[in-house]
């Protein structure tokens, strides 16, 4: 299953990559593969912007505007004028995604 094309904000700076392979290890969608001792963005459109790769790259070779792809969270954000928020007000009893 693939989501919308060319929306992911994933950025990769190969000159900073040391080829440790951590990004490929943490990515749940196999976005990265290794080639000649460096990471390669092989499947950009599979990126779900979870941010695991950027968070675990000790060399700053990856950046991504991480967030949860959840319509309810985005709508919450629009209604409150904030960033997308999964926080449904805790005890309000609303049934939210996470």
């Amino acid at each position: 299953m693939k989501y919308l094309k060319e929306t992911a904000t994933l950025k990769y700076f190969p000159e900073k990559c040391t080829g440790c392979g951590r990004c490929g290890e943490v990515c749940p969608h196999n976005v990265f593969s290794m080639s000649r001792g460096k990471a390669v963005v092989a499947h950009r459109d599979r990126c779900m912007e979870c941010g695991a790769c950027a968070k675990n790259c000790d060399f700053g070779a990856i950046s991504v505007d991480a967030g949860v792809g959840c319509a309810a969270a985005v709508i919450n954000g629009i209604l409150r004028g904030t960033e997308p928020s999964c926080d449904c007000g805790g005890s309000s009893g609303s049934a939210c995604c996470c």
Binding site: Y3, L4, G69, V74
Partner: peptide, 16 residues
């Protein structure tokens, strides 16, 4: 999209 395991935030914003 909130429950799915492959949607991303940028895409959801675009859909909305």
């Amino acid at each position: 999209t909130g429950a799915s395991t492959y949607t991303n935030l940028s895409g959801v914003k675009k859909e909305l």
